[in-house]
Computed example of a mutant assay.
Amino acid sequence: MTNSTSGGPTILRYTAFSGDPAGGNPAGIVLDAGGLDAAQMLAIAADVGYSESAFVTGIDERTLTVRYFSAKAEVTFCGHATLATAVAFAERQGAGELLFRTPAGEVPVTVAAGPDGVLRATMTSVEPSSEDVPAATVTEALAALHWAESDLDPAFPPRISYAGARHLVLAAGTRSRLADLDYDFTRLGAFMTSLDLTTVQLVWRESDTVYYVRDPFPVGGVVEDPATGAAALAFGAYLRELGVVTAPATITLHQGDDLGRPGVLTLELVPGDPRVRVSGEATAIA
């Protein structure tokens, strides 16, 4: 669960959006990163080897200043690492209200124990936004994914959605299309870099409130992110802007099933608040 060098920071390993250490999305966590510079944080993230790691560089009571690094670069926000960090902090300092100060803005997080005593965290996004995507951009994305235009669900137009990080939302017309992910790693990574995308959010609608999702993440140095909180928040905003759901609403995302690391992300839309909430469990990895 932990390791450290003599006098160095303690590195925690947690998985987010699952109560099973073998499910969800693993994240590295350093709760005492105040003495580390960016190069050291990047080196730790690369050594941990997960899609992202969170570094708490300052704590003022229950306000945490946090930076996030993939194995290749710093990112503005990471949902699953935020959720995992909140649970790890609450296990040591008690459940309740937290505030994460991130490069993308302030993110409130609530950690509470359920009837079974299991801690569950709920984070609230920064104010989201979205933008239409030119046809040429969609064409390049599909080429990199090895998808055809006919593979898309026409009810869900491609858009770039933001709720702390930018994600291109593409909806598959069938569950089998989503399950068959075999893309050009280099080409998709270059495409995403050109648009400052964190992931491509691939989705399939089982119902208006239940979706299966996958997130290629070549810009982070991994083929796929198993459970992506930031993309989930962006997708919740996308669904509301599209009019598929109306607040109040609860939306369930299943992610990681096709990787053998199943996780569940629960989205909540609240009337009168443009922000999106996502919640889930997190647990230490032995």
Rank of each mutant, 00 (worst) to 15 (best):
A95K: 02
G58W: 13
V210P: 14
T246S: 14
T209D: 13
L145R: 14
D215E: 06
E140V: 12
I160E: 13
T2V: 14
L197I: 10
D37I: 04
A90P: 00
V244H: 10
D225G: 03
H167F: 07
R275V: 00
S279W: 03
A81V: 00
A143R: 15
G79W: 01
A112F: 05
S18F: 02
R277N: 14
F156N: 08
C78S: 02
A135R: 09
A71W: 00
L197A: 04
T193V: 12
A45M: 03
A247Q: 15
A104M: 14
Q93L: 08
G105Y: 00
L170F: 08
T10R: 06
T63G: 07
R62C: 04
V210M: 15
A232N: 10
D116C: 09
R175I: 03
D47W: 13
V210K: 13
F89S: 10
S125V: 03
L269I: 01
A230K: 05
G49S: 03
H254E: 15
P216H: 00
R277Y: 00
V87E: 09
D151V: 10
A45T: 09
V200Q: 07
A135L: 09
S150H: 13
V118Q: 06
R67I: 14
D196H: 07
T250K: 05
V87Y: 04
A46F: 02
T122V: 10
R67D: 11
L64I: 11
G7Q: 03
V203L: 00
L12N: 03
P154S: 05
S279G: 13
R101T: 01
A113I: 05
D180I: 05
P134M: 02
R67W: 14
A16F: 05
L269N: 00
R67M: 12
D116W: 04
E140H: 15
V56K: 04
F217T: 06
D258C: 01
K72I: 15
L142E: 11
R13Q: 10
L145Q: 04
A81M: 12
A237E: 07
R13S: 08
M123D: 05
D225K: 13
R159D: 06
T228D: 07
L12C: 03
T252L: 05
T199F: 04
G49T: 11
L145I: 02
S53P: 10
T193I: 15
Y50S: 00
A16C: 07
Y183M: 06
E127S: 11
D196S: 12
R261Q: 02
A39L: 15
S70P: 12
F55Y: 04
S53V: 05
T186R: 03
V244Q: 11
H254Y: 04
F156L: 11
M192T: 01
F185N: 12
T266N: 05
R159V: 11
F69E: 13
A43Q: 10
I11K: 07
P248G: 04
R166P: 02
S207K: 10
L267Q: 03
A33C: 11
L64R: 11
E97N: 08
S207H: 09
L239C: 01
P26G: 07
V276D: 00
P26A: 05
